[in-house]
């Protein structure tokens, strides 16, 4: 077995646990009813972003953890790819929501937001999915290592 893949399974094992914890934290916060912030982390309490979204982050964690059983084998590896895709869906939706919120002027303002208001929308705190996003991108490196989508690495 290739050393790269061993490293990969350790990495995604840790990421999987983190994602799982984030997902569970999301669900706990939603069940509690008040949103939770800690430093630059904010867990939303609304049932859509927190509850539904949290559930998906939890699934992403499970996908990662399933994949490390045999990371070099293609069917297990693709579970890690799927885990990352789930994180991208949630984080992507969060970011899109931020973007669409940042541009218009709001009820009181003019047509467009002020520059401070615009930039302010992107200031922390962020939801957990946003923090997971950069770490999930590592999967692209592994996909590349495999030689795109067409390589076979079964040994």
């Amino acid at each position: 077995m290739n050393e790269k893949y061993n490293l990969g399974s350790v990495y995604f094992g840790i990421l999987g646990v983190v994602a799982l914890v984030c997902g569970i934290a999301d669900l706990v916060v939603v069940a509690g009813g008040d949103s939770f912030s800690w430093g630059i982390l904010e867990i939303p309490s609304d049932p859509f972003r927190g509850g539904w979204g949290g559930l998906i982050i939890l699934f992403a964690g499970l996908f990662y953890l399933y994949s490390i059983k045999n990371f070099s084998e293609i069917h297990h590896f693709s579970k890690a790819v799927m885990g990352s895709i789930l994180v991208w869906v949630i984080a992507g939706c969060d970011i899109l929501a931020m973007i669409t919120e940042s541009i218009p002027g709001g009820e009181e303002g003019g047509w467009f937001n002020t520059l401070e208001g615009f930039l302010g929308t992107y200031a922390p705190p962020y939801a957990p999915a946003i923090f997971l996003l950069p770490f999930s991108l590592v999967i692209i490196y592994h996909l590349h290592k495999r030689g795109g989508t067409n390589a076979d690495m079964e040994e």
């Binding site: 539904w52 998906i56 699934f59 499970l62 895709i85 789930l86 869906v89 939706c93």
Partner: peptide
């Protein structure tokens, strides 16, 4: 789970 994510 994937279908859930797609719906989301």
């Amino acid at each position: 789970p994937i279908a859930f994510a797609v719906l989301y």
